[in-house]
Design a protein around this nucleic acid. Sequence first.
DNA 1: TTTT
DNA 2: TTTT
Lengths: 180, 180, 180, 180
Amino acid sequence: MARGINKVILVGNIGQDPETKFMPSGGAVTNVSVATSESWKDKNTGQPQERTEWHRVVFFNRLAEIAGEYLKKGSKIYVEGSLRTRKWQGQDGQDRYTTEIVASEMQMLDGRGGDSNQGGYDQGGYDQSQPQQRQPAAQQRQAPQQNQAPQQGGYQQAPQQQPQQPQGGGFDSFDDDIPF
Amino acid sequence: MARGINKVILVGNIGQDPETKFMPSGGAVTNVSVATSESWKDKNTGQPQERTEWHRVVFFNRLAEIAGEYLKKGSKIYVEGSLRTRKWQGQDGQDRYTTEIVASEMQMLDGRGGDSNQGGYDQGGYDQSQPQQRQPAAQQRQAPQQNQAPQQGGYQQAPQQQPQQPQGGGFDSFDDDIPF
Amino acid sequence: MARGINKVILVGNIGQDPETKFMPSGGAVTNVSVATSESWKDKNTGQPQERTEWHRVVFFNRLAEIAGEYLKKGSKIYVEGSLRTRKWQGQDGQDRYTTEIVASEMQMLDGRGGDSNQGGYDQGGYDQSQPQQRQPAAQQRQAPQQNQAPQQGGYQQAPQQQPQQPQGGGFDSFDDDIPF
Amino acid sequence: MARGINKVILVGNIGQDPETKFMPSGGAVTNVSVATSESWKDKNTGQPQERTEWHRVVFFNRLAEIAGEYLKKGSKIYVEGSLRTRKWQGQDGQDRYTTEIVASEMQMLDGRGGDSNQGGYDQGGYDQSQPQQRQPAAQQRQAPQQNQAPQQGGYQQAPQQQPQQPQGGGFDSFDDDIPF
DNA sequence: TTTT
DNA sequence: TTTT
């Protein structure tokens, strides 16, 4: 249940191939960066200006699997979700904050999706509202990786349960501290 | 002009009285924190849980003046805007990032607004898209203040004019105190 | 699954007490009209103008019960939903079309809701995405009523199944032809 | 100024080439139908079902010119706008109502736009909020055409001024009764 | 880092 | 009437 409205709508292209990881529960987590941009003319010089905004989008469970499988660098997508700001500790021990969009719906907007569309995926919309805890095959847990200086923050501790869309499985604890 | 869609819609209550500052240009800048929350029952224990999300919202120019004048701690508002992540330097010299919602529209959702509603303000919606250069009065520029440990970042320098909604005219100086 | 996005967001006041009816399946259906308005100054005469738009909103099942129980004339609400245009036959046998917003989420925006808030309803948000087919007690079917010149159309025939949010119960046929 | 929020967001394909007409003021008006669809499985039979919703979208002025020039049957677009229900008289003298989305923003979502992109149009987003009353050249008024049995209504009388986005030019009266 |  |  919600008190208030916390809604984000994005249409943009993703900057890199998505990264999918798995939670101990088996649920997938996929992160992408989505670019939107604004262009305008400088009022004084008349010079064209452009500013690109990068949005960290995180998908869970079924949406994460779809995102991980079908999106790739350059894909144009529609994303609907909510804002969540996570607190984490920098290597200097200081608190950092990262704001992400937790996706609740995603649609691919690219035309004919090349080779990505075999296998029964019918290029429609995916809504987390009817989660069908599908256990992805071959979900070998990723080996711990070096903390790669996240753009604007990253998990340092096990992430909190995300309340947005309560899932069937557990979701509780990560056994290492470099979750995704 | 935009490439892509970058849209945020919030309905929530503001956590503190707004803070309005002025840019060198004379344009107002008002910051508020807006709370939205989610509640759910823990799947295992059945315990009720709640998570409150705080959103940093920034208003510019006319909207900033209205926000500064009429909003107060606890006000319920509708906000529409876009996400912007700013980079700033922590006191340790390290880069920090703060994500804010740059408001393009705001509406007060509280009932008859007590004493805030005399003076011709008719409790409607405010949209930055049709700026009607109204000259507000008596807004002595705030004295420089100490950098008060921002929640998740803050201006370090005088804020830049926000390119989001380029204004046609100057917008620089206000000379009287009756904004609208 | 969706192809494309069909989303409506309204914030407005309802014009009359809601009307709740029940489907043969027992599911509730509540209709309200929501007003939004625009005001502006005539470019030539400078006269203030106002236009109020009325939106037909329909709630199903749990949302319908909540709407029917807690909303009343004048209530300010947030509604999110999708557009649906229904075809029906006028008494002259001609086709008519009515466009409605099928609500998927609703929040009451009024302050402490007077006496409407006892009974466990905690004035939050209601989302149809986790339907908990509650069988409303005392759902005596309303007696057929006169077709009261609907604002912009009304069901003449049994309404089609609404695919938006598939429900558990049947939903198929009404045994009278003035459903709501 | 707005009291309340009246917002529609669509992503879909247009069903036919757009039709652009011009108002006496010279402002363009373009209409398109946008399809969105939902598919699901019948709960009883398990049969796949689909429902397509058609949305009447109207663009004014600059957006209308862009829509008229660059959109074509099958184009995928993002549209943001507001709902407006118009009243008109059927040929039987009876009132009819048609609900449309008055677009305030449009973006083309198709990939490289084929031949439509020469001439300086840079395939970005178009926002009516900074109207730059461009007088389209060669805007020979369309000859009156037969009232082609509109899908769900059509103007019979001169349309009212559309208050949404007040424009600079006149906008007042049509000299024939089959406006668009 | 995308896209135009 | 689109699209898959």
